[in-house]
Simulated scan of single mutants.
Amino acid sequence: MSDSKGKEVSALKKLGVQVQKGDHYLCQEKQQGVTKCKSNGQTLSYQSEEKAAVVTKIGKSSTTTVSLFQRRVEETIHHESPPPVKDEITHFSHRHALHQYKVQKRDKINCNICEAEILDKAWSCESCKFFIHKSCENIPQKIKHKSHLRDTLTLRSSTNYACGEFTCNACCDSDKGFHYHCSPCKFDIHVACAGLPSAVNYQKHKNPLTLCYDFPILSSETVKCKVCDMKINKKGWAYYNEDSKFIAHVYCAVDKKKKDLILAIQKRLQSLQMK
């Protein structure tokens, strides 16, 4: 018997496996694959190695005994570097690079894209007084909207109309800045209007209000908003409940928490993005 075979037999005997004359045995090594998991910026790798003895008894049909006599598990920790933090970006609408900007409460800065107030971090070109929410960086440039199913709407930073302004088909306000536009139809809506939710729960009304792109009340009389008591333009959109006949301007009905509204608008815009 060779030295290696003698060592294998000794290892088996320590485990209570008796090798008798005529038995066939084989020592095997088995190495398992690497398992990785991440925790606190680190990657942990586990690799196990097993050694086994396979003993086949002669005279008994297909009886095999397997005994492990050594097991080793290796653990390796890989330190990963955090992804680099961007300190500047480019945006299709502005000729200069935009840099990180920390907005202070006293600043009172509105986003050039969605026009809502910026409450925290922003991308900015300070020399041009151009500021956008960090979350507005990736607002889609083309969307398909339920209010205008015939054509794709394209994000524009200004208008080509001779008067220098556009009138929003949603809220009916005139503006000069960012908006979604359809050239053949001369259809324009603010970025924020494009992202308005299809239904809202107004705090002083028990039933949900549905966003209507066509005016829901057929009447020649003046219709007033149930929230602010001001006239509603019948050419624009409104939130309405058929059962209660409750109607409101689009921005009278939405959540007054500006930060929540901004996030809701941006999330809806992403869902409208052309794939």
Rank of each mutant, 00 (worst) to 15 (best):
K121C: 07
F92D: 08
H94Q: 15
H91D: 09
S124Q: 08
H94I: 11
V103Q: 06
W123T: 01
E126H: 05
T154I: 15
H133L: 06
K129P: 00
I143C: 08
P140D: 04
C128L: 11
I132N: 05
S127A: 14
E80R: 08
H133E: 07
E126V: 14
K142E: 12
T154V: 15
W123M: 05
H148C: 05
R150Y: 01
H133V: 02
K142P: 00
C114I: 10
K86Y: 08
H133K: 07
R95P: 01
H99A: 06
A122C: 03
I139Y: 07
L119S: 13
H148S: 03
K105H: 07
H148G: 02
C136V: 02
E117D: 05
S124W: 01
L155A: 11
I113S: 06
D87C: 12
H148Y: 06
E80L: 14
F131A: 01
D107H: 12
I143V: 14
H96L: 07
C114K: 04
E80K: 08
E137R: 14
D107N: 15
L155V: 08
F130R: 01
K146F: 10
C111E: 06
I118A: 07
H148E: 04
T154Y: 13
L155D: 03
H99S: 09
W123P: 05
P82W: 00
H79Q: 14
